[in-house]
Amino acid sequence: MSASAAATSVHAHDAPASPLLQASALFCERDDRVLFSDLNFSLFPGELMQVQGSNGSGKTTLLRILCGLNSSYEGEIYWDGVAIDEDRESFLASLLYIGHRVGVNKILTARENLRWSSALHAPVTDADIDAALDGVGLAGYADVVCRNMSAGQHQRVSLARLLLSPARLWVLDEPFTTLDVHGVKTLERLLADHAGRGGAVLVTTHHKLDVPYELRRLNLDR
């Protein structure tokens, strides 16, 4: 299938020791329609991979499968060389996922939301939260109830988690949709910074990513 070929050919790093995330012979079918079959790719530390495909081509499904939220697939997924089912805990400790539903409770304030979502992964202080909100352009919004924010601001609150999390793998599903021009720039910089520090990013977007960084593409269209 084209996807595996495209993914491997673009890869031009000096072959790092081992891939962080590796998918082998992934197959997924929904409503009698094959979304992808025999999909193979590896994601190495310091790589930024954009998953592309037309609407309904299975981008979100692929990301959810990789995170373990969707189990209706065949094939193997390895994190750091170990199948993710075998050592789920250390995989989840290294994973940060932001989906279509951004995981921001509207009744709570930005700070309360971030305090909880961080508590599930790594301890943070109030100063960390302020700094993270500052980093996504929400300085001064820490104690504003999220109901009084716009959709783009919800997205930013959830993106603040990128700055609070120690995770090495970021899996982001359409993170650009509701962001304004500045937000897009900020996020692009965050992605490049993360990859530069040896993290790995998997992102779906229709937006043309403008990053000072080599971008790998995984195309799900056949």
Partner: peptide, 29 residues
């Protein structure tokens, strides 16, 4: 926004104890 708060990239096992995650979830609800 170029520098990050400290907890980035520690590459370690989770430092949060199950109990504090339990507490945080209880408190949130």
């Amino acid at each position: 926004m170029t520098t990050h708060p400290s907890p980035q990239q520690s590459n370690q096992r989770p430092q949060v104890s199950t109990f504090s995650a339990f507490q945080a979830t209880l408190r949130r609800d």
